[in-house]
Structure formats: C-alpha cells, structure tokens
C-alpha cells in the first residue's frame, strides 16, 4: 500500500483516477477500521487533509461551507454554525466517541454510505449540497441525490467531495436530529430522524423536511411525514400522522442491532420527538 498526501484536489482526483484500489483518507475512522476488520486492502490511501480549504468552515451566502476534512469536534466548536444548524452539528457530534470526533468528518460519514450514518438525515433535512470535484470538473449535488445503497453513493469514478454547503435559513426555522441506540453513546443508530422546520408568525409550520436513518437501504427522505406537519402547530394529530408516515416509509432489516419491528416503531418516535425540538428551536409555540 502507498500513502500519498495530496497537495490539491486536482492531484487527489488524478490519483483516484490511477486505479481501482485507491481510497481517500480523511478522518480515517471508517477506512482504517475496514482495513483492520473487513479485509479492505487499498493499494493507495490519499490523504486529503492538507489540501487548502478542505479543513475550513467558511461563511457563504448566509450559510456555511464545511470543508471535506473538517472534524466533528471542529464543527462543534463553531458557535455561529451551531446557531444556524444545531441539528446538523448535533448529528455530526453523535458519530462515535470524543476520540472519533477528533477525526471523523461529515463528508466521510456521507461517503461511507451507511444507512445508519448520523449526519446524513440531518443534512438531508437541512437540504445540504455536496460540492464534488472530479475528472470532469466541479458539480454541486443535493445530499439526497447521492445516496445509492448500503456502502454505495452516486459519486462517479475518481470523484471526491470537497465540501458540503449548509444553506441560509429563514428567520423562524429550526432543525434537530435524534437517534435511538441501546446505550447512551458508542453505538450505531438503530433508528434515527432528522427534521427541519420553518414556521410563520403564528407558529404554523410552513415548510418541513423529515429524513430517517437505519430503516431502509439508504437514509430516506419522507415527504409524507413532512406533509403531515405542514400547516399544523404540531398538535397531537399532526405528530401521529407524521409517525404513521414514517412507519410506512420504513423498510428495515432484522439484525444484531435491532429488529425490523423495533426500527419501524422507533423511527416514528424519533421523528416526532425531533420535530418537537426543531419546532421549539424555530420559535414555534403550540
């Protein structure tokens, strides 16, 4: 195996293009574990942490652009970002331990392709957009459009994510992410939900995005669950309809982390609880 430090994204793309066996190394919290446990043996690891701009959080169009190698810990230490998208930052900060937080990145979490990735439902709810560099240049793609299946994304050969853009938000808006795990920390999500809401001056929800994790082959956006919230003040009926829509959207597996039945039930619980938090953050009053 070779270890190469890429100077810029063009070099990283070129290296990725040299063969099938190259992998990017950002926080390493997935690829190094896979190398240890799953027999993954790349020919080359391309370290992208020293590329200019990859490790910075920058304000842009009243939103924030998060470099691909920005760690969870770094996002958590950015007050303005936390104020704008608290749910996204919370979601990223739930990935692994404090130690993992020191390395793990939002872009890596996305590229790993896990349906249980904590940051992904929150990013979808936030309508985040990935900036992709590849042999054919740069393109911007909404996160939801990148998800393909367990361990897979719609990134083309030799493409890499250079940053993720979290857009500006309306004045009365809030987001939240919740997951269920058997312990209080250190587990992979068994069911999770990211919710982002906007409310009007009367606390009525005007816009909503609901995304669920760990209940289908990919993280899924559930427009029916969002629709159940729009036009309401999150009354009991709205929350119940939201939960019902979530349950209907679930297509989970039975595995060592939870039964399909459990995931289906709990996904709705996470979504309604997250919706309530997002609503409160948006300034909504029932």
């Amino acid at each position: 195996m070779r270890y190469v430090v890429a100077k810029d994204s063009r070099e990283a793309v070129a290296l990725l293009n040299t063969g099938e066996g190259a992998r990017l190394l950002s926080g390493g919290t997935d690829v190094l574990v896979q190398m240890k446990l799953s027999g993954v043996a790349p020919d080359m690891l391309i370290d992208i942490k020293r590329i200019d701009g990859f490790n910075t959080i920058s304000a842009e169009d009243s939103g924030f652009r998060i470099g691909a190698t920005v760690s969870g810990a770094k996002m958590g230490a950015h007050p303005a970002l936390k104020t704008l998208w608290p749910g996204v930052v919370e979601a990223v900060e739930l990935i692994g331990s404090t130690q993992v937080q020191g390395r793990a990145t939002m872009a890596g979490n996305l590229c790993n392709g896990s349906p249980a990735a904590d940051s992904v439902p929150a990013m979808i709810a936030a309508e985040a957009v990935a900036r992709i560099e590849g042999p054919d240049g740069t393109r911007d793609v909404p996160i939801a459009a990148l998800l393909k299946g367990p361990g897979k994304t719609h990134l083309a050969k030799a493409e890499l994510i250079s940053s993720i853009f979290l857009p500006a938000r309306a004045a009365r808006a809030g987001d939240a992410y919740l997951r269920f795990i058997p312990r209080t920390e250190m587990d992979i999500a068994v069911a999770s939900a990211g919710v982002s809401l906007e409310v009007d001056e009367n606390s009525v929800v005007t816009k909503a995005v609901v995304a669920l994790g760990a209940v289908a082959p990919t993280v899924v956006s559930v427009p029916e669950a969002a629709a159940a919230l729009i036009g309401t003040k999150l009354d009991a009926a709205a929350l119940e309809a939201c939960a019902k829509a979530c349950t209907a959207a679930c297509n989970p597996i039975d595995d060592k982390r939870g039964t399909a039945e459990f995931r289906t039930k709990v996904a709705g619980v996470m979504a309604t609880r997250a919706a309530k938090i997002a609503y409160a953050r948006a300034g909504g009053q029932q």
Binding site: Y3, L25, G28, T29, L32, V33, K36, L37, L45, D47, K49, S71, A73, G96, S97, T98, Q99, V100, Q101, G102, R103, M186
Partner: peptide, 26 residues
Amino acid sequence: GTGDCGACSVTIDGRLVASCLVLGAE
C-alpha cells in the same frame, strides 16, 4: 484496534484522537 475503547487515546495538535485510527504517516 477499532476506536471503540479509548485505551490508545493521544492528542494530535491538542485534539483528542484514538491513535489506533491514525496512520503513523499522518
């Protein structure tokens, strides 16, 4: 060896990490 126990904790540039999930070259 997989970042799940913290026994290998060190800091890099002041940031807490699991040294089993960092390459020496980094």
